[in-house]
Design a protein around this nucleic acid. Structure first.
Lengths: 343, 343
DNA sequence: CTGAAAGCGCTTACAG
DNA sequence: CTGAAAGCGCTTACAG
């Protein structure tokens, strides 16, 4: 269109207006689907839009409207399977709703660092979704200034969230409870637990569920081992458990931990499930292919991400339907790594 | 500040100006660090900014400046370890540079769908980083309109990229070559290959490297098996390979594939590395903890992400230093899954 | 049904 | 060193 031949900045609504022989306000009406536009002029405008390859400038839209169709997800890490899947789910739902999605990584749980990240995310202008499975995330959720639309992806909460700050979660407590009961039902005297870090001062939902099942069964309650998030921590915990001949069943806070425990048990010459049963949490993609394949709990992380977005969407636009309380139900997946205790 | 007591939309530069008793243009000068502001008025403005908790509106900034400090990464999937790590690396570097990062997931490799996604990403207003390891990504890279700043994260290219469309990559071809040579040096007659999908019509860089090493050694060159991306495909390929007693060494296009192969070999009663050696690619976090632990190639994906951002940053701001050709060198990690062939 | 005005919160020349 | 003007590309009342 211009002399140099390249479309710098592409066409604006004024260009379209000129091409269609109308005012740019009318162009605005057309792209916003206002009913009050004569059919013939609408068609002329649409033709001009098409011809010029006009795309409405999102930045100008956001400035004029005072809000942007954007959501940014705050997370401690994008490479952990669960976190990555939640992000994937948010993106799917956001894309379908015409929202853009940003990511902010919480590299440290340090108060000041978290605050800075939350501010940056707030500057993006849209809503926030914070993954609050770890201290950094929990702190971020707390640091979100009042009035900013936010939904938290959290561990099973002790009480229902208050209305203006919705949360989504999967019922981890119930899942841990069920898995522990399953292991107990196999004949194990008790079940040991290797924990992921608690997101708060309180013990985690998974730990709670495990403890409840053990107590209800009147089984001895061994102190949970702290395993961190990755296989290295699971390996260290597994080495410790392997030294105790009374250990016959181990529930782990996630599949990575379970992998480390499996490896430690192997190194210690303790066959799984012959001598020790091991169960994980998450059903990561590789867990079905381990040897032995891992008994675990399947969590619908992408569904969780979609639910988080749906909820936020509802807050952001009154017109959008607010999702019902979005608690998805985890599913037990029994594989080779668990079985009856040794005779 | 206002009657209802809540800070709706927070303070603008006009509010700050009023509080400091200057014009809002002067506030603009202060926040942009212009030298020509009297020390005393600068201090008054700064004090007002602090007091009102002013944060410059990023949307308005972007509109006024005509460009935004934003980068969006286009990727086929956020849950694959490599992809997630690249995203993580981009985010790290972007955050350090004060850029926001968006993600767009390419759910389909369909031409039209890809084009829509690229458009959406372009609408965000900043630069683009596209992960072009798969057909969807490759197509997205091609669909980026001229003039839009973009860098591609690609497989080892056959030729150097042209100047205005920089690429980053790790030297996969060399890595596959080295790993194959390593396996051959152990005494294997040849090395079989289970491939990840090629990103283009051509064969992948990893396949090329493997083939070159096999040919140079004068070893028989078995046809590569197609494994897809995940363990399921590796499992299927592994089952096939297990039936051939002459197979003693298998190189896999990634660690997930290797995991599936390992599992298949186990099911077929073929001990690793006793009868068959297996090697992967990527060094995913779980690979060191498998039993047997996996021999693989370590790739610096987050470094790749950081390099991609650095390059884009250089394109976006002439002031920013342009990174040197960012080819990182993969590293062989020899673990338990590889060894000498059976006697 | 459609145009002219004002404004979103900033920046960038232009004056002085 | 600092203020008044114009503009980034859109939307939202207000007129007619």
């Amino acid at each position: 269109m211009n002399v140099t031949g390249h479309t710098r900045g592409s066409a604006s609504i004024r260009d379209v207006a000129a091409a269609a022989g109308v005012s740019y306000q009318t162009v605005s009406r057309v792209i916003n689907g206002h009913a009050s536009v004569k059919q013939s002029t609408r068609e002329r405008v649409l033709a001009a839009i098409d011809e010029l390859g006009f795309r409405r400038n999102a930045t100008a839209l956001a400035l004029a409207r005072g809000r942007s169709r954007a959501v940014t997800v705050l997370t401690a890490n994008t490479t952990h399977y669960g976190y990555a899947s939640i992000l994937q789910g948010v993106e799917e739902a956001a894309r379908a709703a015409g929202y853009s999605v940003g990511v902010g990584v919480l590299e440290s749980a340090d108060e000041a660092a978290v605050t800075v990240e939350v501010q940056r995310a707030a500057d993006a202008g849209g809503g926030l979704i914070v993954i609050a499975y770890d201290p950094a995330g929990v702190r971020a959720l707390e640091a979100v200034p009042a009035g900013l639309p936010v939904v938290g992806v959290v561990e099973t909460p002790a009480s229902d969230p208050t209305g203006d700050r919705p949360w989504v979660w999967t019922d981890d407590r119930k899942a841990a409870y069920e898995m522990t009961r399953h292991l107990l039902s196999l004949g194990h005297e008790t079940v040991h637990y290797v924990a992921i870090p608690s997101s708060t001062r309180r013990t985690s939902a998974r730990t709670d569920g495990w403890r409840q099942a053990v107590q209800e069964a009147g089984a001895p309650e061994p102190p949970p081992l702290q395993g961190g998030w990755g296989p290295a921590g699971g390996h260290a915990a597994g080495l410790e458990l392997a030294r105790d001949p009374s250990v016959t069943a181990v529930l782990c806070g996630n599949d990575d931990l379970a992998l480390g425990v499996l490896r430690a048990l192997h190194e210690a010459g303790r066959p799984v499930p012959g001598e020790v049963s091991v169960a994980g949490f998450d059903d990561a993609p590789h867990s079905a292919y381990l040897t032995p394949s891992l008994t675990t709990v399947r969590l619908d992380f992408t569904g969780l991400g979609r639910a988080a977005f749906a909820l936020l969407h509802g807050v952001l636009e009154e017109s959008a339907p607010v999702a019902p309380r979005p608690v998805s139900v985890p599913e037990l997946v029994v594989r080779e790594s668990s079985g009856r205790p040794p005779a």
